[in-house]
Design a protein around this nucleic acid. Structure first.
Lengths: 217, 217
DNA sequence: TCGCGTTCTATTGTATACAATTGCGGTCCG
DNA sequence: CGGACCGCAATTGTATACAATAGAACGCGA
């Protein structure tokens, strides 16, 4: 979208993810327009996008509030993501070209280096990770998937989790990616899809293990 | 959404589906506001929704045009729908209560009656069919799915196809639904999911068989 | 004091005017 | 005659003012 609209989207998004506002809390459009520094018109565009990503929800009568996900919803989110992203991976396996494969290797090189050190560089890891998954999605060549998946991946969880990952988890991610690359090289869609499924399911369990047990403490 | 916005959405939608405009054709926001009889502001809301459903696309520089789906995209659409809707069905199988089950039977009774006659009543069929699938989706109790699926089902294809279905196809739909109901009654999620998958895949092949061969003629 | 209705206020929805951007066409120079 | 540049027209993007609606607070009567 356009400049103001995008600006609003990013500002509001990071505002929500920063944790300054608690789930369930009301947010008026006017408030959001103050936050993002643009008028309500582009704010409304941004809000509609955030509603689709379910970061914002419209309460009974049109009032906006920050989404509050139940555990069941988070489970479901990972499940759907695993389904769709492994499907994307299967498609990508059939359509992968040499250049993309090379690029995937480069990206994963960066990712691996960022975690194979005493103090993992989370920012670099997240960035490389995103690039890796994005490139696969692009190779899947499915406009629909490209529209649906991002709303599911939506960093909320990804980002919140990355800090909770243990270093072994991060290293394992790099290993998963290596195996994905091997599957792509072999043009084996079943293999590739399966690796992606377990990659995501593992992330899910690391996540739910970490956060939920701490909540219960 | 609100009144004008919804009105715009429906008007534009039916305008596109009516076939008055051909895929790829440009549509200015002003034109759309004339069609729907409201100002550009609510039109833009509606447009954003239609973009998500991929009935409209924004070409290179923000100009709107009617979406033009490749065969591959239509295949993908059915594939995704089958994946997600059978997943929804699996969830529903675990959560189905007696009332909903009864209601499903009622709806399918209507559906079956509408096609078991010399001249099938397509309108009634479509309406009952939609209710049937909607109720299952509701029983799945997954806000995410409820958001994702409709954008995929989106009558475009459903409606265009219904007229192309042979009477046997329509009757078979009713039979599929009966089997779904049996699976729900048995609380067998695997069974239910499988029936839904084949239900949709059959629709897909009826569709692509009908339309694509005629195109090639 | 409780329940109900009424008014007032906060919030969202719509229209319109204006700004910015992009495409198109015409013209001028080589 | 061809190509590039410049300027106008069409289209989208943004702001603001106003309308409609839903919620809350207040007061009145039973």
């Amino acid at each position: 979208m356009s400049r103001a609209s995008d600006r609003a989207y990013r500002k509001i998004r990071s505002f929500i993810l920063s944790g300054e506002v608690r789930p369930g809390m009301q947010l008026t459009e006017e408030r959001l327009s103050e936050i993002s520094g643009v008028s309500r018109t582009p704010v409304r565009d941004a809000v509609q996008r955030l509603e689709n990503e379910m970061l914002l929800v419209r309460s009974a009568s049109k009032r906006l509030s920050v989404a509050d996900w139940s555990n069941d919803e988070i489970d479901e989110m990972f499940t759907l993501r695993a389904m769709l992203e492994s499907h994307a991976t299967e498609r990508a396996a059939l359509r992968m070209d040499a250049d993309s494969l090379r690029r995937l290797r480069e990206i994963n090189e960066v990712l691996t280096n960022s975690v194979n050190r005493p103090e993992p560089d989370i920012t670099t890891f997240l960035d490389a990770n995103r690039q890796f998954h994005d490139l696969i999605l692009a190779c899947a060549q499915s406009p629909r998937l490209s529209k649906l998946l991002p709303a599911l991946v939506e960093q909320p969880v990804v980002n919140r989790t990355a800090n909770q990952y243990s270093q072994e988890d991060l290293i394992q991610s790099g290993t998963d990616h290596d195996e994905l690359i091997a599957a792509f090289a072999a043009k084996d869609q079943v293999w590739a899809g399966a690796v992606m499924t377990s990659h995501i399911r593992r992330a899910f369990h690391s996540f739910s293990g970490a956060t939920r047990s701490t909540v219960e403490d």
